[in-house]
Design a protein around this nucleic acid. Structure first.
Length: 464
RNA sequence: GGCGGCGUAGCCAAGCGGUAAGGCAGAGGUCUGCAAAACCUCGAUACAUCGGUUCGAUUCCGAUCGCCGCCUCCA
């Protein structure tokens, strides 16, 4: 089966064929570093991580770029408020972003271009647009004239001829010819950072950043560009206009967009008090692995309703995978030869998972197949129908889950030596049938977050 | 107002023309010193509502209701 993605450009699921065989160039819209990223942002970043991992699993070499927008209205305003230079202010949130990325187990992209490091490239792109008469000046700023780009609106399906809706009626942006024309270069102001470039002094517009950096790092036509649905218009529409107007080439072949995360059924917002950063959740003791599992278990194009109950359900589901992995870690096959029924099942499950993920990254479908195998594996081990081949095959499926979903089943912190000593003491107590003493030790360990399970093969432990 | 998405058991969530995967929670049982874990059994005359197309619709079409989003440099 072929890998297929839903392409926003065509509003259809299409077979994925990269420009160069075996290689995928991927641009994922990253954070504006004016504050901590919230879990809605990470829903998107996590899905992009899955996309990257799955492409790799399918044998593609991936080159990914994720921008860090470190100059825009908000970063400038917040830096001023904090009494810091723009660079000092954004550094803090760039560092925080990478801490969060690490906490969630997101693979690093090949490139994290900062907007302020690509100003000359942006100016050059604007220059090209000027040369082709796509840009006009107004009050010292440069605007892209959308009427000069016939394909405008193809991605978002907005009608460039129609007015921009009632929302902007009272805006004072009357210096534009058309309300939907957008700034590619902003006039310098005394109290704002600015750069001297070949097109003069000023700072870049938001959209030009992504066009300039993506084309510089990935080429003027590349394979996949992603972001949240809110980016479809105006950001990505404008990127297409600028890039294709400048180069005369198709900009991006596949546009993929993730639906939003909502909290308790409502849009997340600071005023509603339902706004969570990763740090908020970690501080409340929530498990980042469970969060990762939860955010990945819902198909990326469906709205995801985040609730604390949902997070704990995700933790419980993940716990089942952990339990299986721990059991397999300790397992000795009951049949050194023979068995093999489960190995056959495992092959089918792996195929089922691949088919599901091939179909526009259907993670929920893939997990359904995985849990079929979980149940049947336990069943086979219980029944003693479990051979060497079965063990290998089952471990193989768990490894595939680990590389694709970025979650390692059975992962646990190491035991302290004094906890190990307690576990041994309890085993001795049980051996002499001193169950009262054994239970005391078990309770004590539970209080320290260690759960014990007595199995025919001996004591197993895991962290709560 | 324009454009787009979503509505499946208590909760989460696949499926998208042939009669409802999976997870969590719950009930009963097996196993266990007791637990835990695991396994077995049990759950939607039914997929928001109402029409239509069809031999047949959760799946296609239309309408209605509800929710979410974009149209303002919010993933």
């Amino acid at each position: 089966m072929a890998l297929r993605f839903y392409n926003t450009l065509t509003r259809q699921e299409e077979e994925f064929v990269p420009l160069n065989t075996g290689e995928v160039r991927l641009y994922t819209c990253g954070p504006t570093v004016y504050d901590y990223a919230h879990i809605g942002n990470f829903r998107t970043y996590l899905w992009e991580d899955l996309l990257r991992r799955y492409l790799q699993h399918r044998g593609y070499r991936v080159t990914q770029a994720m921008n860090l927008t470190d100059v825009d209205d908000k970063t400038i305003a917040n830096a001023r408020e904090a009494g810091l230079t723009l660079a000092d202010y954004t550094r803090k949130y760039i560092e925080a972003f990478f801490e969060d990325v690490a906490a969630l187990g997101i693979e690093k992209a090949e490139h994290y271009p900062r907007a302020t490091a690509y100003i000359p490239e942006m100016a050059r792109l604007v220059r090209r647009l000027q040369e082709k008469a796509h840009v006009y000046e107004s009050r010292g700023s440069l605007y892209f004239k959308i009427s000069t780009f016939p394909g405008y609106g193809r991605l978002s399906r907005v009608d460039p001829a129609a007015g921009a809706g009632q929302a902007r009626i009272d805006s004072d942006e009357y210096e534009k010819d058309n309300p939907r024309d957008f700034a590619v270069w902003k006039a310098p102001k005394d109290d704002e950072p600015y750069w001297d470039t070949e097109i003069g002094r000023g700072r870049p517009g938001w959209h030009i950043e992504c066009s300039a950096m993506s084309m510089k790092l990935l080429g003027e036509t590349f394979d996949i560009h992603t972001g949240g649905v809110d980016n479809i218009f105006p950001h990505h529409e404008n990127e297409i206009a600028q890039s294709e107007a400048a180069t005369g080439k198709p900009f991006v072949r596949y546009w993929l967009h993730a639906a939003h995360l909502i909290v308790d059924g409502e849009k997340m917002s600071k005023s509603k008090g339902n706004f969570f950063t990763l740090r908020d959740l970690a501080a409340r003791g929530h498990d980042m692995r469970a969060l990762r599992y939860m955010l990945l278990s819902v198909h990326y194009r469906k709205p995801l309703n985040f609730t604390v109950e949902g997070l704990s359900q995700a933790g419980a589901a993940l716990g089942r995978l952990d339990d299986l992995a721990l059991r397999l870690e300790a397992a000795t096959p009951s049949l050194t030869t023979g068995g093999g029924d489960l190995a056959v099942k495992a092959e089918k499950v792996l195929q089922g998972m691949t088919d599901a993920l091939d179909a526009d990254l259907n993670t929920a479908g893939a997990l359904g197949h995985l849990f079929d195998l979980v149940r049947e594996t336990h069943s086979a081990v219980d029944a003693g129908r479990f051979g060497e081949r079965d063990l290998m095959a089952t471990r193989g499926v768990l490894r595939a889950f680990e590389t694709i979903f970025g979650i390692r089943p059975g992962q646990r912190a190491d035991l302290d030596t004094d906890i190990e000593a307690l576990i041994r003491k309890r085993a001795e107590a049980r051996a002499r049938k001193d169950f009262a003493a054994a239970d005391r030790i078990r309770d004590e360990l539970l209080g320290r977050g260690v759960i014990l399970e007595d199995t025919p093969q001996g004591v197993r432990w895991k962290r709560k």
